[in-house]
Design a protein around this nucleic acid. Structure first.
Length: 411
DNA sequence: TTACTTACCGCAAGTGCCAT
DNA sequence: ATGGCACTTGCGGTAAGTAA
């Protein structure tokens, strides 16, 4: 009966421990390292089951019980308009896809003071609630959002009156040792602590496998899901909002015609793409980069494509296009219009990751501190040493299109 | 100590809608 | 027709950590 709290910020770990029944149990804390790309000195020391969750993206907290992860928490203070609320979605997906319940703390609104205008509340894009519900429908594992405490409901039309104007209207815990954590006496946080307690009790009572399966039928989670559904409706949630508005649906035939340029007498496109009649394309007309697109891509998978637990169980192909997609109905094809991103940006990022690879070293050239990392790379190759967005894009997208190159799955 | 990498966090320009 | 406004989309600043 031993708990371990993996954290990136220790004060937040203490905050969660002290406010839940974790307090008083047999617990230990350990720092978590995000990837082999950003922390080559330490990432390999994490246990395998933690690496698996981190494969896509790293949450703020992972709590495990007898070496099994039982829930994760992600906290953000960003104003959640547009695709911002989806920025952290890949890490929620990574958690749930490993059967680990995920908590998401996000402001209902945050005060933004723009040039030449009065402070105002930027409100959360309610589509995030539907995305989380869609994940839960597929995995039967909780993925629940709680509002970061704020003054929004007290001063919804008068952001300037917020007592916490200096903190974007957000309410932080006043205890120094919980620095940066949300106010612990807030109703939303108390509700979240109760849900965490529910998980702990459920798992201690029924074991990890059975305990997890029963969670969504517990009153605490039923009620939370109801609140999330209500918020989606009350805040005017609709599928006509970001990031869905940045997608186009086309007949897969158009995509195959476009990719036929890459076919020759020795190679034909494989069966995976052909197996779905229609294709969703997420258009990103930006310089090739990471956040917030990896999270948005993951969310689109659940919002539009998935009908099962793996990428093979999609109703539609999910394609990421770097540029504007122009549909040509005459020749039943598409073209990509972009002067910002190139396939070279992608391959350069991949090559840069390979520089992290120490597999071409002679044994005698390895420092003692590198041997364990070397051994990890022998097993996993560059799996964990690629940058996050390369990992996430290639995990979720059936294909990635640039105006000067493309990548796709055959199977 | 400095340069560089990675990813987090957050702002604001642009766009299009709606009230007047 | 137009100005205000809210939402969408894209990019910038910076902390944290590593490598040289």
């Amino acid at each position: 009966m031993k708990y371990k709290i993996w954290y990136s910020t220790e004060s937040f770990a203490d905050y969660i421990i002290d406010n839940t029944i974790l307090n008083g149990k047999n617990i230990s804390k350990s720092k978590m390292y995000e990837s082999d790309a950003n922390n080559s000195a330490n990432f390999h020391t994490l246990p395998d089951h933690i690496k698996k969750i981190l494969y896509l993206d790293a949450p703020d907290i992972i709590v495990e019980f007898n070496s099994e992860p039982i829930f994760s928490i992600e906290v953000s203070t960003e104003a959640g308009t547009g695709h911002n609320a989806f920025q952290r979605f890949a890490r929620l997906a990574a958690s749930v896809e490993n059967n680990v319940p995920a908590f998401y703390i996000y402001p209902e609104a945050a005060i933004i003071t723009r040039k030449d205008s009065l402070p105002k509340w930027d409100k959360i894009n309610p589509l995030i609630f539907k995305a989380l519900n869609d994940v839960m429908s597929i995995y039967k594992i909780p993925a629940v959002l709680y509002y970061f405490p704020s003054d929004y409901r007290l001063f919804p039309n008068d952001a300037s009156s917020s007592p916490n104007l200096m903190n974007k209207g957000l309410k932080f815990d006043t205890r120094i040792d919980y620095a940066g954590s949300p106010e612990g006496t807030d109703g939303e946080m108390i509700s979240m602590f109760n849900s965490i307690n529910e998980i702990i009790q459920s798992i201690e009572l029924d074991g990890i496998i059975n305990g997890r399966e029963k969670l969504l039928s517990k009153r605490t989670f039923i009620d939370r899901c109801s609140i999330m559904n209500r918020e989606f409706i009350e805040k005017g949630g609709s599928i006509d909002s970001s990031p869905i508005t940045a997608t186009k649906k086309i007949p897969t035939e158009y995509l195959l015609n476009y990719l036929s340029n890459y076919e020759d007498s020795n190679y034909k496109i494989g069966n995976l793409l052909k197996s779905r009649n229609e294709t969703i394309i997420y258009q990103v007309d930006a310089k090739f980069r990471g956040d917030p697109y990896p999270g948005a891509l993951a969310a689109l998978d659940y919002l539009l494509c998935r009908e099962g637990k793996t990428f093979e169980d999609r109703k539609y192909n999910l394609i990421l296009a770097w540029g504007e997609v122009i549909i040509n109905n005459e020749n039943k094809s598409i073209s990509i219009n972009s002067n910002k991103a190139s396939i070279e940006d992608f391959t350069m990022a991949v090559k840069a990751s390979e520089n992290k690879n120490i597999l071409n070293k002679n044994y005698t050239d390895l420092k003692n501190s590198e041997i364990s990392r070397y051994y990890m790379q022998v097993r996993y190759g560059s799996t964990f040493s690629k940058v996050k967005h390369i990992r996430v894009y290639s995990y979720f997208a059936d294909g990635i299109l640039f105006n000067d190159g493309a990548l796709w799955r055959d199977a």
